[in-house]
Design a protein around this nucleic acid. Structure first.
Lengths: 170, 170
DNA sequence: TAGCGGACATTCCACATTGTTATATCGGAA
DNA sequence: TTCCGATATAACAATGTGGAATGTCCGCTA
């Protein structure tokens, strides 16, 4: 029954290797770190936690106050995580709805196109600001994660530059 | 029964708005255009084609040579596509396994880390080359799609620059 | 010219993953 | 007391992945 871990489960394990957390905490932690380049929902966290527990990779604590159940990674879990993280990573997968809008721009009413572009720009600018506001602190505390954040910064800058060069925005 | 189109089905419709195609062709066309920023599998193409046909958005032709069935977009299909493409696009979704490797780099054996990085670099460099080889031709023939390709170019350049700045690569 | 290998083409299936929605409890703040 | 936010879970619908099975047709070459 040693099915492969999926990336989501593995990331959860990775976070649990830092410290024990409840599902709720895990989700929050995930969102503001890995969440920048990997999406997840809350249900998924609990689901994955279940299967992780079935495989003996985490231990679900007692249901204490507020039903809170802290998950702790087991030695087997650490081992599984280490094995997973050391495999060659696959290609990334992007799904960028705005690129569909651009790709089919000829079918989009000009006003809508401009509006959508402005909104995208705002979103990405806000994300960049958020990343920049964190980067120094993260770099000091967590070197490896800060490199992933560097990617986010480079990415957002590239997106913004590209948006600014769109012909209908100049 | 007028359920929302999903992005995948809508993109397929968008391609069919250019010209009628068989599922096979659709997949090929998709792969080397939209495929750069949206993934799809062959089974999915056929499945979506089925539901698109059920909703009257495409017409599946007679089975011709080699079982080939050409799909043609209907007026209702064009309308549905135009409505879909004019809605505000949502946020993009990235899933970048290598970023997990980087994020958890402390748990990765140095040799593996270096190896993975080199492979990533090669992949992205190859993609960039591929895009650059096409861009002039695409720009001349299909202005809007070329803007999406421009994004690909900007993206790959950003990734390469980021990779080259990783501390274990210098 | 017969035959073969490879490209073209579709269908079906099994499964994994994801997203959404609803529901229930409890502690603390207002 | 009432309401909000933290917390957990279930159940379903939708989406996505990957591959097996099956057949056709094209062009090459023995």
């Amino acid at each position: 029954m040693s099915r492969e871990l999926n990336a989501t489960a593995a990331s959860l394990l990775g976070l649990l290797a830092w410290r024990p957390m409840s599902g709720w905490e895990l989700y929050a932690e995930f969102e503001h770190t890995i969440g920048h380049f990997w999406s997840i929902t809350r249900s998924q966290v609990y689901r994955e936690l279940q299967t992780l527990a079935e495989r003996g990779y985490v231990e679900l604590g007692e249901s204490g106050a507020r039903e809170r159940r802290v998950s702790t990674i087991t030695p087997a879990g650490r081992e599984a995580f280490n094995a997973w993280i050391a495999r060659m990573p696959g290609a990334e997968q992007i799904r960028f709805p705005f690129l569909l809008t651009v790709f089919f721009a000829e079918a989009v009413p000009p006003a809508v196109l401009r509006q959508a572009t402005i909104e995208q720009r705002r979103t990405h600018a806000a994300r960049l600001d958020g990343y920049l506001a964190q980067i120094d602190e993260v770099r000091a505390k967590a070197p490896a994660p800060s490199l992933a954040l560097d990617f986010g910064i480079a990415y957002e800058r590239a997106v913004l530059a590209w948006i600014d060069a769109l012909p209908w925005m100049r």
